[in-house]
Design a protein around this nucleic acid. Sequence first.
DNA 1: CTCAGATCCTGTGCGC
DNA 2: TGCGCACAGGATCTGA
Length: 271
Amino acid sequence: MPELPEVETALQGLKPALEGQTIKQVRVHNFNLRRPVNSDLNVRLSGAKIIGLSRRAKYLILELSQGYLLIHLGMSGHLHITTEHKQRQKHDHIELIFTNGSVLRYNDPRRFGLFLWMHTPPEQHRLLKDSGPEPLSNDFNGTYLWSQCRRRNAPIKQAIMNNRVVVGVGNIYATESLFAAGINPNKAAKKLTQKACRELVDAIKSILTLAINQGGTTLKDFYSSDGKPGYFSQSLAVYGRHGKACYQCNQGLITCTIGQRNTVYCNHCQQ
DNA sequence: CTCAGATCCTGTGCGC
DNA sequence: TGCGCACAGGATCTGA
């Protein structure tokens, strides 16, 4: 379940392997992702050169000599560099075959991901144009979050998981950040003080940064081998620990559902 | 504009 | 041991 740190790690790992490559052929084995893969992907991409890789929210953007590829890993997506003679695995839905014999394979068991070709920059695409600021940018700060929270009656957890407010904060990191900031995830967003917003922003930034750094070490070789992502699980204070003792006060951690997502928190430490 | 709820999909892990 | 089922999750879409 790639969260932003995993996507960032994927980006760093893939960049040197992909930039400058020329696509010889594209094979699509299953077009049914979150949205249908372009039916003419092979025609569009054959002969195209990969100019650059970047990330916006949890999307990877490949700038090509002919248009752009917008890739989202959804819940269960992986990008994997291998060679042509290596046998295709179950759920390897898309293969980009390069002129030097290497292959990029997109594997996604649950097919919540996205693999879209477009001829204009994806940042302007409707999937991205209304996205909020990057969580690690200066645009995401306490003043901004407070302004976004003021009119919202929904729980604060839903606000920070809303991609129009801020991108890249998924369930795990929202849960962890709220614990770190000592804020009850059920609290109405509009009830947060400016100070609380500032502390929440700080918590989100430091937890994401830590996870990216750890991901960088744990996942270093992942995209060129068969390792398993071990995102940061040793560092989780509340996520997946419901019923267990809070590390701060020893009380049992509570679980509830917010916005159809499982949430864990400490009723004593998070007000 | 805000927000609740449905939806897509398959691997995992539980109870029986 | 095996079957059935609930669950997990990101993001979009619909309808109120």
